[in-house]
């Protein structure tokens, strides 16, 4: 096993403690640059950020500004062009395929379009979070370890879908699907939770509920949550720290209270919309 702490499955609190013991910042990004193809403009122009082991961090900014690219670089769904991403003390950018897979198990991800496997049941979608730990043949025969199944039931109860276990994912509403998506991500026992525009496809009321759920996960499971969101009000309400991005650069990094109109102008441009 390349890394003992990654391969094992200690209790969440233990992980947080181990992570904190090794490094006060479980995730450190240095000078991250991304361009899609040589000669194309840089989407990320040297991002440097470090993240605390707990709490919700919201990344705000207009669409097309590289928020999503940034978050996808962290688990290398998008390959960074250059820079360093240090997660639990290891540089993700330089990992080989197999090592990357093992690191990805510790990073949960929630998607804008939920990305559930539509034709599978809610339970099976949640258990998909364990695919990194369970051999393929066991997953195929649905012989998941009993502990995983019990945790999946608990998580479904937590997100309020305990009665939907056997329903197919395509029969759920958007908000319900996103709850399943969150349960799947938490199922990984992650040391970090990434959420890429988790509320953009949802109505305002459901958006608040989903953000509450993410904040609760961060709080109760001691998992740092990094969330892309373009709704400033939601970001202010649920995040302990806000990162404002504009045109591939970080233009604000601080607490929600410190976010003034001038920052928002710098992030989103223009001013009419503020009044």
């Amino acid at each position: 096993m390349p890394d003992g702490t990654l391969a094992g499955r200690p209790a969440p609190a233990g992980v947080a403690a181990a992570g904190a013991g090794r490094d006060a910042h479980p995730l450190v990004v240095r000078n991250l640059v991304k361009r899609y193809g040589a000669g194309r403009p840089e989407v990320l122009k040297g991002i440097s950020l470090s993240f605390e082991p707990r709490g919700v961090v919201a990344i705000i900014g207009p669409s097309g500004t590289g928020k999503s690219t940034f978050i996808r670089c962290i688990n290398r769904l998008v390959e960074p062009t250059s820079g360093e991403i240090r997660f639990m003390g290891r540089d993700i950018v330089s990992l080989g395929r197999q090592e990357l897979r093992l690191v990805r198990r510790r990073i949960g991800m929630v998607f804008q379009e939920y990305n559930l496997v539509e034709r599978l049941s809610v339970m099976e979608n949640v258990l998909c979070g364990r695919l990194g730990y369970v051999p393929a043949w066991r997953a195929w025969l649905r012989r998941y370890p009993q502990a995983d199944v019990e945790q999946a039931f608990d998580l479904l109860d937590m997100v309020g879908l305990g009665d939907f276990v056997h329903q197919r994912a395509d029969s759920l509403s958007g908000g319900q699907r996103q709850r399943v998506g969150i349960a799947r991500a938490v199922m990984q026992d992650p040391d970090l939770l990434l959420a890429d525009e988790p509320t953009s496809s949802l109505d305002p009321k459901t958006s608040v509920e989903i953000m509450e759920l993410l904040a609760r996960v961060a709080e109760q499971r001691h998992v740092p949550v990094l969330v892309n969101i373009h709704d400033v009000t939601l970001a202010r309400r649920f995040a302990g720290r806000i990162v404002g991005m504009s045109e591939g650069r970080v233009v604000y990094d601080g607490p929600p209270d410190g976010l003034e109109d001038e920052h928002l102008r710098a992030i989103y441009g223009g001013e009419d919309w503020l009044s």
Binding site: N75, L77, R101, L102, V103, R104, R105, R106, I107, G108, M109, F111, N115, L116, V117, L120, E124, C128, G129, L131, G132, V134, A136, A139, W140, G181, R184, A185, Q188
Partner: peptide
């Protein structure tokens, strides 16, 4: 993409994704 992001091996991605 979601299954790959969860660290699923290729065989599991094929079977479940």
């Amino acid at each position: 993409e979601a299954l790959r992001a969860a660290g699923a091996p290729p065989a599991s991605v094929l079977l479940k994704g």
